[in-house]
Amino acid sequence: MTQPLVLNYLRAKKQFPHVWCPGCGHGVVMGSLIRAIDKLALSKDDVVMVSGIGCSSRMTAYVDFNTLHTLHGRPIAYATGLKLARPELPVIVITGDGDATAIGGNHFIHAARRNIDLTIILMNNNIYGMTGGQVSPTTPYGGRGSTAKSGNPEHPFDISQLAIAAGASFVARTTAYHVPAMDRLIQQAFENKGFSLVEIFSQCPTYEGKWNKRGDAATMLKYYKDNAIPVTSKSKYSEEELKDKFLIGILHHTPKAEFTAEYQKIIEKYQIKEQMTQLSQQKGKNEPEASSKESESPVSED
């Protein structure tokens, strides 16, 4: 089953081997994404994938869609233009924690506010992998990286909560361990018409793991397994028990008016207005007598 999917959706002959390190979670996310696209039976000719800069964003070179590898932090802004220009195409944004919430934080919250129909696949590994392990906006307080060797003095973002507060209509979180759930959540994100975020905790054993002594990839995956609480069973736990855990599943789903559809209404409004003025101008030209009669008619008759 995997074989044909690989041949069908990956640029298998040209772009491999990939840049991801052994044990990296990003490949698992790519697998999940193409399974979701396959299940939804989206045409490869239609799917647009936009990415920024970073390890996760290298995905665009590997998949056989319309792929746009943009600048650091900007994929959501590029995708906004592309989606508004071509609302009929499904647009996916591939990004990471640094790309989307540090340099691209402004675009991230404003796209969520607009509720533009983008599917954001955000791989959160709590670190800048491509540049060699610097702390990111999601590195925990006290966590280590090459730019905070004695512990991070800053506090992290909760990206999912940030998106909810900014107005996203669909927000889900999962991890590279919970693969079947990831397949399902990505599918559901596609099905939501509006800004849809899937935040995926994806392990970086090379830098995050090394700096914070988290062990190898398998140990890091086990950490995800042991500390993830499905949002549906949240009520079974006390606040104390939830303190060092994180919730997975659909955290927020509140459909609301989508931006490109709303803009289409504006176009229709203007075009109806335009047609009306054209019609009245034509009328004025064709029936000059009728109009002059109208103007002559005494006011008292009305």
């Binding site: 900007r74 233009g81 220009a85 075009q271």
Partner: peptide, 25 residues
């Protein structure tokens, strides 16, 4: 919108130029 085109006010100038590149693509 009168000619079926699209206008968007972005969050800053970086986003503006990014959006027009996206639309041109």
């Amino acid at each position: 919108p009168r000619v079926g085109g699209k206008f968007i006010q972005m969050e800053d100038e970086i986003a503006s130029i990014s959006a027009i590149i996206g639309a041109s693509v």
